[in-house]
Amino acid sequence: MSETPHIDIDYVANLARLDMTDAEKAKLGTQLDDILGYFDKLNAVDVDGVEPMAHAHRVFNVWREGDQPGETYAPEVLTKMAPESRDNQVVVPKVVE
């Protein structure tokens, strides 16, 4: 990463399912290149043998025991908040695989 990295905005925007205008993309591209350039600082650090830190505390085995069923929502909780629903199911435009 010695060269300043450059984001392929179209590729990333598609992964993130974000519709953006060309103007938005152009502006964002410049800003993000600046930010990524700033991130280059990290390459100066020796991280050999350092364990990545995914959580603030080292804790294991946090779980729910007993497999006892809890409360459920009535279907109306979902259908009331959904943009479109029918017969207690959420409706979306036809999904073609």
């Binding site: 459920t72 979902l78 017969d87 207690n88 959420v90």
Partner: peptide, 12 residues
Amino acid sequence: AAPNTLTDAVVL
């Protein structure tokens, strides 16, 4: 089970 009767906040 009938549609959307086995949900809670986490499931949704």
